[in-house]
Design a protein around this nucleic acid. Sequence first.
DNA 1: TAATATTGTTATGCATAATAACATAAATCA
DNA 2: TGATTTATGTTATTATGCATAACAATATTA
Lengths: 148, 148
Amino acid sequence: MTKINDETLRTFVGYHLKRSFNVIQSDLIETLRPFDLRMLTYSALVLIVDNPGLNQSRLSQIMDIERPNLVVIIDELEERELITRERVPTDRRSYALHPTEAGRALYRETLDAVTQHEAKLLSGIAPEQLEQMIATLKLIETAKKGQA
Amino acid sequence: MTKINDETLRTFVGYHLKRSFNVIQSDLIETLRPFDLRMLTYSALVLIVDNPGLNQSRLSQIMDIERPNLVVIIDELEERELITRERVPTDRRSYALHPTEAGRALYRETLDAVTQHEAKLLSGIAPEQLEQMIATLKLIETAKKGQA
DNA sequence: TAATATTGTTATGCATAATAACATAAATCA
DNA sequence: TGATTTATGTTATTATGCATAACAATATTA
């Protein structure tokens, strides 16, 4: 039962990010399981409800995934009749994505559940401390273009 | 070119964690590419150099992965003669993992490269702000057991 | 009109991650 | 002691996440 030394990896911000994200991700996966949603299908549903009519290209951009990978996600949401694909008259290449009433209902249910689970998980941390962290995370998020 | 609204997802800490981690991960993957290392093989190498003699069970625990998934990682490091597997006389089930001289050399090279790349990526952020964030990330990392 | 770009799609591959089942060896316990 | 249980490493399998190439249909542009 010897203690393992990970001090070298601890010098990397990315190591801390990964480990803490793992904790939140595990909790989120469990939270979404009763709704039969994965992280990506959940994110897509939320974005479609909040941005009705958007197309798959824009959605894949905001979700930071490649278009081919979004196809199966949209297939699944459509199959479950949570969203619809509608031809756009002005651009017949693309589909406008809209939530169904069932999709909006699931959105409301899951939003509640996810919000409460995350709040519970992080209840031991001061809100202002979390806000401060989010501000820093936003800086990292935009670091790519801002650099080099 | 309409702006997409992700304010709902922005209410989740996990969303910010994921997006910022993606940025660091992309940078790390590129940094490790010249050394023909992936994130997991790199992490394993570092931990073996810093904890010579540990076995695969302990390593998989600290790396937060399942033992079966570690096998191929160790196979690859051994194949490349960066580490060795040595039978432990006192427990002939397990292998003691040790770095070779080549493993230690690669460790030093990559540590320099990774450190410099991350420093460059995050150069626009105040060090004390990063330290504060890491403190919060550590709280999240240990939130699981501390809860419910 | 011809060349180019965009949208959605299929196919494919690699990396990450989880589970079941197993052989070998050690530890426990009755 | 012998029988049972546990631990270690392994194989096989599966699901998921993520990237690229290639393509048909459509739109844009030069």
